[in-house]
Structures are given as C-alpha cells and as structure tokens.
Amino acid sequence: MVAISRAVILLGTAALSGIAMADNCKTGLFYCGKGLLNKGNYYTQIVDALNGATPPQPTDTTHVRESLFYCVGGPNGDITFQTFCSGGCKDGGSGKSDHC
C-alpha cells in the first residue's frame, strides 16, 4: 500500500513538472507558429486562431508552423493570427518578435 502511494505521488509530481515546463508567449511580441509549438502546448490555440481569422486560414501543417501570431497575453497566453509567411517565418531571437 505504501509503495503504491509513493508511486502515485511520483507520477503526480512528474506530470506537474511537465506542465510547469510549458511557457506562455510574451505579451506584445509576434511569434511564428513553430516557435509557439516549441514554447508550449499551443497547437489548439493556433488552429483556433487560424479558423477565427478573417478570412479563415487553412490549418494544414505549413500554415500552423509558418504563420505569424501576435501574443495578446493573459493567463493562457492568448494569440491572434497576423499573416501567413509564404516565404517562411523567421525566428527573431530571444525577447524579440519573429517575422516573415
């Protein structure tokens, strides 16, 4: 019984440490989709932002990774779609906006 309790505690701690590693975008910066995916669990937010754009954008892998998003911020690191970078989205470096 004690061994099972310890195992449950260890699994719970491991799960929480994975959650703690996820990072929100920095308010006011622009991010490539691929950068947001590396930063945290942004896939659903990216797809939602692409679907909610005017006009709605495709949600294929290229559009998810190569589109540019603005970090609105908030507790969930909300984002809005800006543009699709047909020539590829470029990493601006740490603390700087990404760009097409």
Rank of each mutant, 00 (worst) to 15 (best):
T59P: 05
Y42L: 03
S5H: 08
K39Q: 15
Y31C: 01
L29C: 09
I46C: 05
P55K: 04
L68G: 08
S17L: 13
L16A: 14
K34S: 11
A7W: 00
K26H: 03
G28C: 09
P55H: 02
A20D: 09
G93D: 04
G88K: 06
T44K: 14
A22G: 00
A53H: 07
G88C: 07
A20K: 06
D98I: 04
T83P: 00
L68V: 11
E66F: 02
R6G: 12
G52Y: 08
T44W: 09
K26D: 13
Y43I: 07
P58G: 05
G52A: 15
A15I: 14
F81S: 02
D60V: 12
N51Q: 14
E66K: 10
P58W: 00
A3C: 09
C71R: 02
L50P: 01
K90S: 10
V8R: 10
C25E: 03
V8S: 09
D78F: 05
G87K: 12
S67P: 07
Y43S: 02
F30T: 13
C85R: 01
G87E: 12
V8W: 01
N24W: 01
C32S: 04
C89F: 04
T27E: 15
N38G: 13
A49I: 04
Y42E: 03
L11S: 12
Y42Q: 02
P55C: 01
G87F: 05
P75N: 08
R65L: 10
C85D: 06
I4R: 14
T54K: 11
H99W: 14
V47T: 13
P58H: 00
T59I: 15
D23K: 10
K39Y: 06
G35D: 08
A20T: 08
Y42N: 01
G40V: 09
D23H: 07
V47A: 05
P75C: 00
Q57L: 05
G77Y: 01
T62Y: 04
I19P: 00
S17I: 11
N24S: 11
I9Q: 14
K90M: 11
G77F: 02
S5D: 12
F30K: 15
Y31A: 01
